[in-house]
Structure formats: structure tokens, C-alpha cells
Amino acid sequence: MTDLSARVTINGHIIKTSTSRSLLEAVIDSGQPLTDGVGCMGQGVCGSCRVLLRRKDSREVTTALACETAVEDGMQVSFLDHLPMNRHHTYTTNDWDDTWNLLNRINQTFPEASRCRHCGGCDRSCPKHLDVQKGVNLAAAGDLSAAKVFDECIMCNLCTIACPEHISPNHLGLYIRRMTASVMLRPSDLLLRLRQIDLGVMPVDPDVELT
């Protein structure tokens, strides 16, 4: 790499690198050990490499994924620790056994959701630009279309960190999604095939001759 025209500050290290590199690669270029804040390395699906980011001459500080963000000269970057395991909102799939009680369950498991103060911090934090707050409000109102809002959520937890009411929006979204599947998804072709297997009419002959 010959082009070292860009200078970025990452966790206090001034790194000379190229604008063709991602922020994550800039860490590599700096020679520091990289054992944290890294996962899929470019696909933007694991949510590990979350950073706070300020561009040159800008007052604004935003959140972003380092693997998806190209280096720009003068960037200031700070990696964010991953959230310690969140067992704040606990439940098991057995909670959904009584399907007439689902809406109560949502509010019992995520009681903070109804206290959303509409600050919009979750929306502004989301690196995938999802309508997080809208999803939270739908879920709190028992509208399961909230599941759709969180379709592309990568569970980076930035909204959970951002939420002043401790709602854990992404976990709420996942809760609704999981509930939707666990309780309501019963495709007929799968049911039929499972029954055939139970009845023993769907055997596999491992010794079949193949060419």
C-alpha cells in the first residue's frame, strides 16, 4: 500500500493509511493487536465493530460500523465496547404457550417499552437506518407488525446503549419476531413431511447404489 495520504485517530492512535481502507483495516495497518470489535469483517452483519465517529471539521458525532466505513482524512474514531450479556429482559419460548396472553407477555417482559419518551436516539444510532422507535411503539401497543420493522436488525445493540428508558429496542424487536415464528409459523408442507417421517414412510436408504 503506497498511498498513506489519510490520517485518522482511532482510540487515540494516529494512523496513516489510505482512503481505500476501512476503519477496521486502518486498525490493522496501525500494527495494534486486533482481537476485539471485529467479526464478519466487511459484510456488516455481525455488529461487532461499532464506533463513534467524528468527521473532520464536523460538530456531529455519529455511530457507524467500522468495517463498512471507508477512511476519510481527519476522522476521529472511538471503538465501543460490546454490551455485557443482557439478561435484563428474560423469557423462554414457553412464555408463549398461552397464545391468548401474548400481548400481556410483551408488556410483562418489556415493561419499559410503554414508557418510550420519543427521543429518537435509537433511530439516530441505528447503523442500518431502521425505524427503531416506531417498532418499539408498535410492539408496546401489541401490534405484531413491529416484527417487520426489525427485519434487517443485526443486533449490534447500539439502540440498547442509546435508549435512556432501558427498553432494549433490538431485543424487543427480536422478541416479537421470535414470538411470531414460534407461535404462528406452521407451514403445511413442513407439517406433512414431519408426519411422514413420524409414520416411517419417508425412509433413507443409505446403501443405494449411485454413479
Binding site: L52, V61, T62, T63, S78, L80, D81, R117, C119, G120, G121, R124, S125, L158, I161, A162, C163, P164, E165
Partner: peptide, 14 residues
Amino acid sequence: SCGQCPPCKTGTYQ
């Protein structure tokens, strides 16, 4: 933090 500005809530977290 009131939550409006991500750097405030997220910055204090870090």
C-alpha cells in the same frame, strides 16, 4: 442523558 443525541448516551457508556 435524555437520549436525543447518540454521542451523549453512547459516549458516556464508553
